[in-house]
């Protein structure tokens, strides 16, 4: 490997005193400060901020319009167009979940149920949103396309128990998804 000798830049006497540069620096920082005070921060417009800095004032201003299609928010369970549970509690998401946020208790669908063909569904399905890292592995691993990362990101609570999403809450967030899933297909 070639050795490149980097010379220190030769400083003039003025530069050596530093005061000039320090003053220049102060002018730059002050300019930013004044622009910010006047509500004209650089890049504020593009980000739709108030101009007092480029930060969005969160609860009042939201970025929802700009949320990309692939945004990974809270994981949730979805039902199909006939309100049937897609999840069959195969527990693959529980297995793959890196922070072990998912806990499933499998259950059997009673034989008198209209959709007893599928035999299995989750009795309980808890996702601990304190643990969840929004990685999307559950969505990726799900063989029944039953769990999706929804764009919901405002997951708050004042107690730990509130942060555990149970089955009901997960279906509430998840809503409906259409599209054929193999298990309902009589021919498969």
């Amino acid at each position: 490997m070639a050795i490149i000798k980097v010379e220190r830049p030769k400083l003039t006497a003025g530069e050596k005193v530093y005061f000039g540069s320090i003053f220049k620096g102060m002018v730059i920082t002050l300019r930013h400060a004044f622009k910010s005070l006047l509500g004209k921060s650089t890049g504020a417009e593009a980000l739709n901020s108030s101009g007092m800095g480029i930060t969005m004032q969160y609860p009042e201003q939201k970025w929802d319009d700009q949320l990309p299609e692939y945004y990974r928010g809270a994981p949730a369970l979805v039902t199909d167009e006939l309100d049937r549970e897609r999840c069959v509690s195969c527990q693959l998401c529980e297995f793959i979940c890196p922070p072990k946020a998912i806990k499933i208790t499998p259950g059997e669908i009673p034989s008198n149920d209209e959709w007893a063909k599928v035999e299995k569904r989750p009795k309980e399905f808890d996702i601990d949103m304190i643990r969840c890292i929004y990685c999307g592995m559950c969505e990726e691993v799900c063989p029944e396309q039953a769990i999706y990362l929804r764009p919901d990101y405002v997951i708050t609570g004042t107690e730990r128990s509130e942060m555990v999403h149970d089955k009901k809450r997960l279906y509430e967030i998840g809503g409906k998804r259409v599209g054929l899933v193999n298990k309902w297909n009589d021919l498969k």
Partner: peptide, 13 residues
């Protein structure tokens, strides 16, 4: 606050 406006932020407001 001053450091915030220097750095185009908002700071505790």
């Amino acid at each position: 606050r001053f450091s915030a406006i220097i750095q185009d932020r908002v700071g505790p407001n």
